[in-house]
Amino acid sequence: MQTIIRLKDVSKVYGEGNTEVKALSAVNLTIQSGEYCAIMGPSGSGKSTAMNIIGCLDRPTSGRYDLDGIDVSRLSDDDLAHIRNRKIGFVFQQFHLLPQLSAMENVMLPMVYASVPLEERSHRAEEALTRVGLGNRLNNRPNQLSGGQQQRVAIARAIVNRPVLLLADEPTGALDSKTTEEVMEIFAELNASGMTVVMVTHEADVASQSRRVVWFRDGQVLHDHLDPADLNQRAIAAS
């Protein structure tokens, strides 16, 4: 099985001297291709920092991070942008769709930065939107779609460049329970078809649908659990 994420002794320090804050200290984490992993932890636990580093939005202060076999821990901003474009699909709590663009155009955006030819772009965008069940909403603007539909457009945008990693940051945080279920179903389907999914969440029932839970506390991995059966209990105990 191929390793997608390998964090080795990764630390992240903000500030200097007296104001120094250690957000992550010597974190080791390995995630294999095809895994469905939830990252949990209370606020200030370092899970957001870990998420930013895994998503190549930030660099570790020390340690090494290999994404899909590439050491990305010392790359420049523009190289990281390139890696994000080709290797990672992001899904955010607030969807972050551009309001002036249609669903199709939003989904095509990552391919614009990947210099995919125009014809292939619209073909692939349509395919991705159909895959998340929005084949009949191609030309709607975000404000003409429900929250669940908007998040599905965002998922289509995340997968359209065929990334090796789907990284979701509280993807259901802005959704009601019914649409949460819809969206989670899509994540499950994508994972079933081989997509590696890493999801930061604070909702235990959302995390319980994953197949592995990594629990952060005080900048370190507290639990790394492959069987989420007793997760709810742990979550209650921890909070």
Binding site: G55, L57, D77, A81, R84, Q94, H96, L109, Y113
Partner: peptide
């Protein structure tokens, strides 16, 4: 700002 952040997250370089 959010649009710029999103564009950068999905792969826009500084020069883009």
């Amino acid at each position: 700002t959010q649009e710029i952040g999103l564009r950068k997250a999905i792969g826009a370089s500084q020069s883009d």
